[in-house]
Amino acid sequence: MADIFYGSCLCKGVTYSISGRAQMSVLCHCLNCQKSSGSAFQANGFYNKSQFTLLTGANLVTDYHDSAVDAGCTLIRSFCSVCGCNLYTTNPTNPMIKDAIIVMSGCMEKTSEALDAPQMEFYVKRRRDWTGVNGPKTKEFQGMS
């Protein structure tokens, strides 16, 4: 039986569970992830949508269709309409990740148990000079490929 991990937004109005560990853990340094997170990068766990269950607060989740991303696609960034917490992202137009849900690690409880250290970093060309991963070396990509 898979481990169950939980997460929530800042106000705890939106809660969710995830069955099993992430398929991949990444850092994204693209400008939109920086703006969305309000930080130098976004730390994300990639899960299959079937692993994710929204427990409470579905009526509080608002989607922003972000079409101005470096990768040239439209991401659906979902956040809590009460506290503004960025929860997860989906990309139904990309065949490689159309069945994935990209969960923001900062919203997860027991993150170190649910996610491995990041294996990849995207948009390192936009990485701030003062950031770096303190752990296993990541694969670095200048963009999404």
Rank of each mutant, 00 (worst) to 15 (best):
P95T: 05
F79Y: 03
C107V: 12
G72C: 04
Q34P: 12
S37T: 08
G57Y: 01
V69I: 13
Y16K: 02
L10S: 14
S78R: 00
R21V: 15
K110C: 15
M24Y: 04
S112G: 15
F41G: 04
D116R: 00
C85G: 08
I18M: 11
I76F: 01
G7W: 01
V103Q: 01
C28T: 08
K35H: 10
D70C: 14
T90L: 05
G106C: 10
C9F: 05
L60Y: 00
Y47Q: 05
C83L: 06
C80P: 04
S67H: 05
S25F: 04
S36Q: 10
L55C: 09
C11W: 00
T15E: 06
A22H: 01
F79I: 14
T15F: 03
R77Y: 08
I102E: 02
N94A: 05
D70W: 06
F52G: 10
S67T: 15
K110Q: 11
M108A: 07
I18F: 08
H29P: 11
G84N: 02
D70H: 04
S105H: 07
S50Y: 00
S67A: 10
P95K: 02
Y47V: 14
G20W: 00
V26H: 00
I76N: 04
A40K: 01
S17C: 15
N86K: 04
V69T: 07
Q34M: 14
C9L: 12
L27A: 07
T111M: 14
C80D: 06
Y47R: 02
S78V: 09
Q34K: 01
E109A: 12
G38M: 08
T93I: 07
K110A: 15
V103D: 03
Q51V: 15
Y6N: 08
D66I: 12
T74I: 09
K110Y: 09
G57W: 00
H29N: 04
N44F: 03
G38Q: 04
G84W: 00
I18A: 11
K49D: 15
E113S: 15
S81C: 11
T74H: 01
D116L: 14
A58F: 10
C83G: 05
D66T: 07
G72E: 05
H29D: 04
I101T: 10
Q51N: 11
D116Y: 05
I101P: 04
C73H: 02
V61C: 03
A58Q: 08
A22T: 07
T89C: 08
F52A: 07
K110E: 13
M24N: 11
F79K: 00
G7A: 13
M108R: 00
P95I: 10
N32T: 14
A43F: 10
R21H: 09
K98C: 13
